[in-house]
Design a protein around this nucleic acid. Structure first.
Lengths: 156, 156
DNA sequence: CCGGATCCGTTTCGATACTG
DNA sequence: CAGTATCGAAACGGATCCGG
């Protein structure tokens, strides 16, 4: 160090990864469930995926909202509030999620040497198509999940 | 649920995000510093970036190694120093890191409305070029950082 | 000096119970 | 059903200590 600079915050722009919001175990999982499985309610997040505690879930939803990634709207017609939706900033996480998914599928082939998911090839090939499909559904408020009930991808 | 399946583990393959390794605040930061800034030693990680505690750093390095993302080699010629390197699995994280970087640069434009980083446009346009450059350097054991000393990207 | 390991106070997480 | 309150457990951060 050639100066006594304190560097109270983190480094400047160029290599910042903005993990203060996403660098935890649950946030990206929530975003994924909203994007891919069209989850909208507190209970859906709570039951699906991997048993997140309710207080942590509430905290993450709050943090994601204050980060501008999701919005919480009151459900019209049902006073008991809860409809969470992705903002444009949240939808912009789609490429990141897709890459994370591809990486995990490629390298977590434990006990399945010939292909962990069998859909990974399609995902890699159709990156752009998948992302534009996600965007289209989001723009049209299409609330159908991208994933079928049996757990297989509907993507091309 | 049409069956009483317990789902003891997490869901099956299709939407798994493998955040058990990467879903924390430091791991991706370490990988980024190895990939972009060509960091190799314990001390480099410790001093640069955002003051990670030594015990946490040691723990993350161990976990990244046991996840097959990095390897720790003893420095030949200097017994006391160990050298960390990305494996192929670690280099495969490059697309993910790039997307994370792009997202952060695009949406963390706090107080800089006209362009947070000014290099983001180039990054988006040259995704493929950046990734192939990273791969080329890794294959040739090129240990120069991708980032210049003044903090600006060297990427095309 | 460098790469850790260990101890300790503080923060966060996770499970469950509880409330509007 | 959507959260909040509580409490033990785990993770974190800082400092110090140790082997090479």
């Amino acid at each position: 160090m050639h100066s006594g600079k304190k560097t109270t915050h983190r480094s400047a722009c160029p290599v910042s990864l903005s993990l203060e919001v996403l660098g935890d175990r649950w946030s990206l999982l929530i975003v994924r469930d909203m994007m891919v499985r069209a989850f909208r309610s507190f209970k859906q997040f709570q039951e699906s995926g991997e048993r997140i505690a309710t207080n942590i879930l509430a905290d993450r939803l709050r943090k994601l909202e204050s980060a501008g990634i999701i919005v919480a709207e009151g459900d019209p017609g049902d006073g008991r509030r809860s409809v969470y939706r992705l903002t444009e900033r949240g939808i912009d996480l789609a490429p990141l999620l897709l890459e994370l998914l591809i990486w995990g599928a490629r390298h977590a082939a434990e006990g399945d040497p010939q292909g962990p998911c069998a859909a990974i090839g399609a995902m890699v090939q159709h990156r752009a198509a998948v992302l534009s499909e996600v965007r289209r559904r989001w723009a049209e408020h299409d609330d159908r999940p991208l994933q079928a009930a049996d757990g297989r991808w509907l993507w091309p």
